[in-house]
């Protein structure tokens, strides 16, 4: 599982490195496609949407808390932090299954594009300790993420969004 995750991370960083290389090549060459400039949008992960209940309320905390989901939201291209973006979070925790309404909650990003929401401890289900996050508000392309914890004992998990204007 750890190997899988690091591979994904390496893959993503490799992807951005390629984008960077493409940008340099684009500047030095004659062709300069607009998409090659800067930050590429985050693609939806496989299984990211599973057990999503749209429209969970914005909450101070999901359930009793004790675990932190954190992350950032930026705009594709220039990488500008996006504030006031609604991110919905859900997971199988010590207090409920993924598709239980009490397992789902949403939060808004701060001025620097960061978000953090306290929630109950995530426990391994379907073979991996993982969480789900969604951006699904319409101004940008919808993105569903499904990050995996490197250890089931972790008490934090983070996920970063780069959103493409819709």
């Amino acid at each position: 599982m750890t190997a899988m995750q690091s591979t994904r991370r390496r893959f993503l960083s490799m992807g951005s490195a390629f984008t960077g290389a493409a940008a340099i090549a684009g500047t030095t060459g004659l062709i300069r496609p607009a998409v090659a400039q800067g930050l590429a949008p985050t693609p939806t992960m496989r299984g990211g949407r599973n057990n999503y209940l749209p429209g969970a309320p914005i909450v101070q905390r999901i359930g009793g808390g004790g675990f932190w989901m954190t992350g950032t939201v930026r705009r594709a291209g220039d990488g500008a932090p996006l504030s006031g973006i609604r991110i919905q979070i859900w997971a199988h925790t010590t207090e409920g299954r993924e598709r239980d309404p009490q397992s789902q909650g949403a939060t808004l990003t701060a001025a620097d594009g960061s978000f953090r929401l306290e929630m109950p401890q995530i426990v391994p289900v379907f073979g991996q300790p993982h969480g789900h996050l969604a951006y699904d508000s319409g101004d940008f392309e919808t993105v569903f993420l499904r990050p995996v914890m490197s250890s089931a004992r972790d008490t934090t998990l983070s996920a970063d969004f780069v959103l493409q204007p819709a």
Binding site: M4, M45, R46, G47, G48, R49, N50, N51, R97, E98, R99, V125, F126, G127, Q128, R146
Partner: peptide, 19 residues
């Protein structure tokens, strides 16, 4: 327990390699 996770697995579209 979780229909979408099993449907993904059966369609070989799951994010988990073991499925």
């Amino acid at each position: 327990t979780s229909p979408p996770d099993v449907i993904d697995a059966l369609l070989f579209a799951s994010p988990t390699p073991f499925s």
